[in-house]
């Protein structure tokens, strides 16, 4: 009787072991489901929570003037990376104009571009930027961790990077990624 009982117990233990693969799959399946909703290419900036890197670069509009990171102190602003060789930037441009009209401070980073066509672009299409940093070598872009153009960074009043969007900025992206953060940074005492 006792050996039979022991055999039954050992069988039951073995049976339990057979459930292990099922349990493993039960852990895996929700992960896969979660993965469906995510964009594997979406990339938060490595600079999030860090200050804009130090730079000294000329202004696109007034080439004699030198700009540096102090530009970003004192207001919550956007830093938009653009170039004339980037057709998507042209698509994005009207929305930047719209934001500027709403009073959102937008700074430009003219990335690996040539001065003359870039100035013409601003003249022809309108200039949404309070100031445009002229980064012909792409050095500041590299320090920012820019992939390409267009990209837009949300920078707080102390010059700290808070968010980034890679690709065209439009109303949907603004509402989804920037609007709430922009509001809360504007009114820090309300937080």
């Amino acid at each position: 009787m006792v050996p039979g009982c022991r055999a039954a117990v050992s069988d039951a233990v073995t049976r339990l072991k057979l459930f292990v693969p099922l349990l493993a799959f039960a852990v895996l399946a929700p992960l896969l489901y979660w993965g469906l909703g995510r964009d594997p290419g979406a990339m938060p900036t490595a600079l999030k929570g860090k200050p804009i890197p130090a730079f000294t670069l000329p202004s696109l509009t007034t080439p004699d003037a030198q700009l540096d990171q102090a530009l970003f102190a004192g207001q919550v602003s956007l830093l938009n990376v653009w170039a004339t060789w980037c057709p998507s930037c042209r698509i994005e441009h009207p929305y930047l104009m719209h934001l500027a009209e709403q009073g959102v401070p937008v700074f430009g980073l003219n990335y690996k571009d040539e001065g003359e066509p870039a100035r013409r672009w601003l003249k022809d299409l309108g200039n949404p930027y309070r100031e445009v940093i002229f980064d012909a070598s792409g050095r500041l872009g590299l320090d920012l961790g820019v992939f390409g153009a267009p990209e837009t960074y949300l920078v707080d009043s102390r010059g700290i990077v808070r968010a980034r969007h890679v690709g065209v900025l439009d109303e949907r992206v603004w509402q989804k990624e920037f609007a709430a953060l922009y509001q809360s940074l504007q009114n820090p005492e309300e937080r």
Partner: peptide, 28 residues
């Protein structure tokens, strides 16, 4: 989401867009 980095590539993107509009989901 169009991140155009290189000159040539953006052109590729623009050229190829009309071909299969129905299937364009999100491209990075």
């Amino acid at each position: 989401v169009m991140g155009c980095a290189p000159r040539r590539k953006c052109q590729v993107i623009e050229q190829r867009l009309p071909l299969a509009p129905a299937r364009a989901g999100r491209f990075t």
